[in-house]
Design a protein around this nucleic acid. Structure first.
Lengths: 214, 214
DNA sequence: CGCCGTACTATACACTGTACGTTAGGAGCA
DNA sequence: TGCTCCTAACGTACAGTGTATAGTACGGCG
């Protein structure tokens, strides 16, 4: 009979389903039981492929990192850096769960190493010494992580009418005497939060600080 | 009798207890029921002061932001920026839960506004126009958020022997043919992850990109 | 005194991750 | 063909979560 058919599951299928659910219902609402139900399977079936929830998270993160394109060749190295950081940002915006996965688990896995290899290769080829290349790699990565995390956060806030209204009213309740600059710059702060321009502004600051060695 | 004494609770007491538990047992293990138990009170008692868990998170975040010192005066503005970012970093390292609180909830609240006022004031006084000041503020904030989030993450990884061993072995299992640069720079990557130097390196890159207007 | 609002309790529900023990399908071999 | 073993998936169970709902007792007010 068709009950308990073997080999209907696989690590890849579980990862894809998990990713779907994370994007559909948000990382907070995501649960192993939800994945199992979606697959028409008992909750414990997943433990054949992953030792626990964190291991599934790792697999999802690495799967997402695998979607990043390779570094473009035949353009100046600053544009290569911009391409790497930009495509990571786009991927994080398309899959908001990636931001949380990157922030709460170490960088490990094959695809993650591939991405690091790309950026580190660019920096080494540009002439940076090993230590500077490593430092710059970490700086760029953490900048993207923070900037896009914040961007996602603010976008979510804007989407939720309740939260957005609350944010506006608390903003407006701030005393102009106590916080003159915040009140004065409120429009700019609201306008410049998120978006390509804000991201590029910070990235260009970093690149402007970098000088090609000798 | 002493049962059900009134007014033993207060929002402030709950926030302080919540903060203690978050630091003692980690943000993941933190629970409302744990706070209630610590206070010797039923779980629902907290709902008199906070509508839900997220509101308590907000209160804890604002409480922590209140610990930040004011911006030092009578030093050049780049040093003022360094001071603001540096003390935010120190606070996040002392209270790791702050990183997660900042990453997952909007900036709202009195103390949070105070901090924003400080940094924005520095930038405006330095002569930046409103839009540039706002963009720079966001850039600096998100850099600190990403950099310290990553620093905390890696420090936690190092502390957990199991995770650290796993990270090292997966690192070593990477093919030197497929990922030559990662393998070559592994020592530098391990050494430059976290620490004052790494943080200052990125912050100085940003400051170097900033030019005092006119 | 009597009343009421407020601070707290008790109970309950739906849900989580996962430890443990069981069962059944297919592969390999006699 | 029949037997055995391995393992994928199952079912049950447990300790824990946030919070909705309803109830209770205290303190201050008329």
């Amino acid at each position: 009979m068709a009950r308990t058919p073997r080999n209907t599951l696989s690590a890849e299928l579980i990862v894809r389903t998990a990713l779907e659910l994370m994007e559909a219902k948000g990382t907070e609402q995501f649960s192993l039981r939800g994945v199992a139900a979606e697959l028409g399977v008992g909750p414990m079936a997943l433990y054949t492929y992953f030792r626990n929830k964190d291991e599934l998270y790792d697999a999802v993160r690495d799967h997402l990192m695998g979607l990043l394109p390779d570094v473009p060749r035949d353009v100046p190295w600053p544009d290569q850096v911009r391409a790497v950081c930009g495509s990571l940002r786009v991927l994080m915006l398309q899959h908001p769960c990636l931001a949380q996965l990157l922030a709460s688990r170490p960088l490990a896995g094959h695809e993650t190493a591939r991405v690091a290899e790309g950026l580190l290769g660019v920096l080494r080829s540009a002439g940076f010494d090993p230590e500077t290349a490593a430092r710059t790699h970490t700086t760029l990565f953490t900048y993207v992580l923070g900037a896009v995390t914040w961007e996602i956060q603010m976008a979510a806030e804007r989407r939720d009418p309740e939260a957005w209204r609350r944010l506006r009213t608390t903003m407006e309740s701030l005393s102009a005497r106590e916080f003159p600059t915040v009140v004065e710059l409120a429009p700019e702060l609201a306008r410049t939060t998120g978006g390509d321009e804000q991201f590029d502004y910070g990235l260009d600051l970093l690149l402007a600080g970098l000088r090609t060695p000798s």
